[in-house]
Amino acid sequence: MNADQWLHAFAAELHHDRVAPEDIRHVVAEAATHLRDGGGDPWTVFGPPDRYAAVIAESVGTRPAPRPGPVLLHAEGITKRYGRRTVLRDAGLTVRAGQIAAVIGANGCGKSTFLRICAGLASPDRGQVTLAGRLAYCPQQGGTADFLLPDEHFVLVGAGRGMTRSTARRAGRATARQLGWESADPVPARQLSGGTRQKLNLTLSTLNEPDILLLDEPYQGFDRGSYVNFWDQLLRLRDAGRAIVVVTHLLNQLDRVDLVLDLTPAVPGGRPCTG
């Protein structure tokens, strides 16, 4: 992990610890100048990012966790069969504004199907989904047009809500930058690396400022720095009051989320992870 990656991880941890954004900017900038002045391995100078972030959080104080807002997504009794195989049985999930829910489970247990049903892109055999707010969906792959440039994607998606070209381009580039990607280069989507295309995919889903964000394993092909940026972004969106559902197979990320829905067949329905 080089200094930049350490700083990214550190910033993400501070976000996670709910340190005020203003303080985060200062503390991270100060640590960066210190590393630049003194050289040195951040792991020796400051220690592991999570531990140092915890110490800083204790020193500067943290914001109280915002009380989760109103329910934005409520799915109940979702049952889906493909032929004689039941992939989802009575699955349910309730996500409030300001919460991140993780959908986990073995391969083929219906994670993507559940998400598509929540997005209204597929029909369940039984069950209901109630949405209070605008929804965006980031598919696992294929949510982009091979021969369009990133800017053209922004314009196309932005126009859906009446954004002008320049507004859409600006918003897209700003979001991309938060994911550590400078998207202004005129490169068609097909020539982007897998990870960068996923960043495009992700940028498109947040472009219209949705209230509810559904993400289907959105970080495939991300390197470590991008991955940290991704969670950083997700926590920012959560703190801005979005309801986020993310399909994941990376269980070590579960401590960052507020709810877990395990779709492994042995566990019917959902179980809340924390209060």
Binding site: V27, A31, V45, F46, I56, S59
Partner: peptide, 15 residues
């Protein structure tokens, strides 16, 4: 003195 020791002290003094 490592940064990890120094800055928390500075932050506390500032606070």
């Amino acid at each position: 003195i490592q940064g990890g020791t120094l800055y928390p002290v500075l932050l506390r003094l500032e606070r």
